[in-house]
């Protein structure tokens, strides 16, 4: 399984905007609940393959979607966090 990363954002409006920008660029994205061990934000985050981290950051910056930070999700932590798919 490819290593995963999560894009942490300030709000759901930013999460949905990020999802749209990255989907339009043909990237593989999923909306997930913000992992509690990474942020106290109770909203959504955007999960991506870790290899796409740099390109996602560039795309979102160009589109003006603010990103808090991008974090790698280790296997161990992934095991602790249930990343159920949300939305479409």
């Amino acid at each position: 399984m490819a290593e995963l990363a999560v894009i942490l954002v300030h709000s759901t409006s930013h999460a949905i905007a990020a999802e749209r920008v990255l989907k339009r660029a043909g990237l593989e994205v999923k909306l997930v609940p913000t992992p509690r061990h990474l942020s106290s934000n109770c909203g959504s985050a955007v999960r991506i393959p870790a290899r796409d981290g740099a390109v996602c950051e560039q795309l979102l910056q160009a589109a003006g979607v603010p990103v808090d930070r991008i974090e790698l999700l280790s296997e161990r932590k992934r095991g602790q966090e249930p990343f159920s798919e949300k939305g479409s």
């Binding site: 749209r20 949300k86 939305g87």
Partner: peptide, 13 residues
Amino acid sequence: GHALANEAERIRL
């Protein structure tokens, strides 16, 4: 963050 709330946010976007 459920499916319908996200869909509503997509409509707003």
